[in-house]
Amino acid sequence: MKTIGILNGSFRTDGNTAGIVSWVVSRFGHILKQSDEVRILVLDSTTAPLPLGPVMDPKIPALVSPAALKDGKGYASSKTQQWSQIVSSLSFLVVITPQYNHGYPGALKDAFDHLYHEWKGLPFTIFTLGGHGGGRCRVQLRQVLEEGLNMKAVSVGDVEIHLPHEFIRGMARVGSAPADFLLEYEKVVDDALVTITTAVEALVES
């Protein structure tokens, strides 16, 4: 069994990202159908041990990188140990994140900064959302993951979801029922998910 993790990059309440994540999971369902070789694991603020908050584990002092810890059991914090175990179980990571003030959320960076070896070599791709689609956020985050954590970027095209004005400045939110504007993104998202699924299924066969 291979696991595709979907990491919700926003830990804010009453936002749009959780609804986008639910929609992507439903699109994955159409593609995976009844596959018994690949499963989806959503990682968000309702998934223990998230949110982790700032790096406070005494085994990771401010001037010592977590790269020095190669065994998840070496972390002093039980939350960090649990996070290490979850990340180590992943075969692929899809990050779905909003763009805040031309960047990615700080809580998302904290989630990555708690670990190092667990991320190293893990294939990933990034979906973004925002008033302008989140392109700046995607470029910045890819640099952190690919160059900083030595993760493996998988090209699936730029999945950038432009949120209508009322979903940013107004009270409208993407909920459990997908918003109509998402229909125009079905093809680009489905194409990306097929690429991801094919890559993960290849791992099953190898």
Rank of each mutant, 00 (worst) to 15 (best):
D180V: 13
L203P: 00
I168D: 05
L182D: 02
Q34A: 12
K73E: 14
I126E: 01
P123K: 14
S91F: 04
G19D: 03
V25L: 00
V87R: 07
G106H: 04
V21E: 02
F124H: 06
T46Y: 07
N16T: 05
P123F: 13
I196M: 10
G5T: 02
Y116E: 10
F92N: 08
G175H: 01
D57Y: 12
N101G: 05
K187C: 01
V156F: 06
K120A: 09
Q81W: 10
R138P: 04
L93E: 07
L203T: 13
S155M: 09
M151W: 14
L141G: 01
F181E: 03
M56Y: 09
I126D: 06
K33G: 06
F181W: 02
F28G: 01
L203Y: 04
H114Q: 08
N8S: 12
L32W: 12
S155C: 08
P105N: 12
E147R: 15
T195V: 14
M171P: 10
V64W: 11
F167E: 02
A68T: 14
T46E: 07
F112L: 07
V64A: 15
A153E: 04
T13A: 09
K79M: 14
N8T: 03
L129P: 00
W119I: 13
V156L: 00
P178W: 00
I196Q: 01
L145F: 00
V200F: 14
K73A: 15
P49Y: 01
M1G: 14
T97D: 04
P164I: 00
L32N: 10
T125K: 01
D113H: 13
S176G: 02
S206H: 15
L163Q: 00
W23A: 02
F92K: 10
V204C: 15
T17N: 04
V188K: 06
V144M: 15
M56R: 13
Y104D: 03
I4Y: 07
T197W: 07
Y100M: 04
I20K: 04
V159G: 02
H102D: 15
D190A: 02
T46H: 13
E147V: 15
F167W: 07
G5M: 02
Q82T: 12
G157T: 09
L108K: 01
P105E: 11
Q82Y: 07
Q82W: 03
R136Y: 10
S65T: 15
Q140F: 05
A107L: 13
V189A: 00
S88E: 06
